[in-house]
Simulated scan of single mutants.
Amino acid sequence: MNKILVIEDEQKLAKFLELELQYEGYEVVVVNDGVTGLATAKEINPDLILLDWMLPRISGLEICRRLRTSGSKVPIILLTAKDEINDRVAGLDAGADDYILKPFNVPELLARFRAHLRRSNEEDPDQLHFLDLSLNRRTREVKRGQRSIELTATEYDLMEYLISNPRQVLTRDQILHKVWGYDFGGDSNIIEVYVRYLRLKLESNKEKRIIQTVRGVGYVLKE
């Protein structure tokens, strides 16, 4: 399920978009001002942002600039009534990927969502996400929101296995075989020890627990 962040200050339009996107099967987070929108974008690491240009406190254009400056590559679609060529150029130069005018056609908006999400998934198959957790297989970088998490080699292998199989219960035997190898003959409590290490690092800023214990079976990465 792709996560969409909608940053829109018109309450009725924001609610309409939320209901329409949920109906299409997206997970939707809605915020109504620029400052909260920027903070939420950094916190939840969405798959796509639908961003109104004219927002209270910080404009959509400034949000684009700040996200791109921070290194974010999330697809951003600007939603606005501004239809001058100079406005479109300014939006794209600020870092937006696309531009749609109000009033808009819902099927067209959804088609653009699908195109950008498909392109985003194709561009970086090594980048894995779950909620606000991200892992890059190529660089071995792990983040919770914008916070970098330093992992040992074994911690990373365990984390990669969990995030590669989100919401799937992984048995202790599966984890042992995948992370430690079929011929592992060490401490039978090794998985519990390393899950505790990961939880301490993932929750060091009092974040919600996402590695859940399934008693008598194993572990699962879920809300």
Rank of each mutant, 00 (worst) to 15 (best):
I4R: 01
I4Q: 04
E8T: 05
E10Y: 12
Q11D: 14
K12C: 08
L13M: 04
F16A: 11
L19T: 12
Y23P: 03
E27P: 00
V31G: 01
V31I: 12
A39F: 09
N45M: 13
D47L: 02
D47T: 04
I49C: 01
I49P: 01
I49H: 01
L50Q: 02
L51P: 00
W53T: 07
L55C: 07
R57I: 11
R57V: 14
R57D: 14
L61R: 07
I63L: 06
I63Q: 01
I63K: 02
I63P: 00
C64N: 09
R65F: 08
L67Y: 01
S70L: 08
G71M: 09
K73M: 06
V74T: 09
P75C: 05
P75K: 00
I76H: 04
L78S: 02
L79M: 13
L79F: 03
E84C: 15
D87Y: 10
D87A: 13
V89E: 06
L92V: 06
D93G: 10
A94M: 04
G95Q: 00
D98F: 07
P103E: 11
N105P: 05
N105E: 11
P107E: 06
A111H: 13
F113H: 06
H116M: 07
P125Y: 04
Q127R: 15
H129E: 08
H129V: 10
L131V: 13
E141G: 02
E141S: 10
K143I: 06
G145L: 08
S148G: 10
I149C: 02
E150A: 13
T154N: 05
T154V: 14
E155S: 06
L158V: 00
M159Q: 00
L162P: 01
I163S: 08
I163M: 11
L170M: 10
L170A: 03
T171M: 10
T171L: 03
T171G: 12
T171N: 05
Q174W: 03
Q174P: 02
K178N: 13
V179E: 00
W180Y: 15
W180R: 07
Y182G: 15
G185S: 12
G185Q: 11
G186Y: 02
N189A: 10
I191F: 06
I191N: 03
E192F: 12
Y194D: 14
Y194H: 15
L202H: 05
K206P: 03
I210T: 09
I211H: 02
I211V: 10
Q212D: 11
T213D: 14
V214T: 09
L221S: 03
